[in-house]
Design a protein around this nucleic acid. Structure first.
Length: 150
DNA sequence: GCCAACGTTGGC
DNA sequence: GCCAACGTTGGC
């Protein structure tokens, strides 16, 4: 089993939204690296850190899991969606997603601030300069360190 | 294929 | 709101 981190702006979609919905298609990803990971590398049951970004207190706030195989992101064909992509066509969809299912909230938000100063997390991707990718793999060691901070 | 311009992300 | 980082676009 692999581990991942997925970012979401809580104003757009928060861990509370995922708790309410149970399962959610992770739509709107328009970055090829992130898409490739969903398409090629994620497996049902992989564990996911749910991370709140671009907000007052950036933090890991929950645990989720990959809940589907890869399939085309329907919003790319929806003209009314902000994620509509006129260059994508139905025979060869450009954007692929997976479903994400709620497992639990962390006991408390594990803030970026504390992740940054943890000696065992120096190489954690979230702490790297210029980290903008909204989906990335997490080493098992890093996963366990973060969980132990709860 | 190069690279400047532009847009987006995301912490602060 | 600012700005660094960096991905994408498009002209050449």
């Amino acid at each position: 089993m692999a581990y991942w981190l997925m970012k979401s702006e809580p104003d757009a979609y928060s861990i509370d939204d995922l708790e309410r919905d149970g399962t959610e298609p992770w739509d709107g990803i328009r970055n090829y690296q992130a898409r490739n990971m969903m398409r090629d590398d994620m497996r049902m049951g992989d564990k996911v850190f749910f991370y709140h970004s671009s907000c007052k207190e950036p933090a890991v706030v929950g645990i989720a899991q990959v809940a589907s195989g890869p399939y085309p992101d329907p919003t790319q064909f929806d003209k009314r969606s902000r994620y509509f992509d006129e260059k994508s066509n139905g025979d060869d969809p450009r954007w692929i997603l997976v479903d994400i299912a709620f497992i639990r909230k962390t006991k408390r938000p594990i803030t970026l601030k504390e992740l940054k100063v943890h000696p065992a997390l120096i190489d954690f991707r979230l702490n790297k300069r210029g980290n903008r990718l909204s989906i990335f793999p997490v080493d098992e060691d890093h996963w366990n360190v973060v969980i132990d901070l709860e």
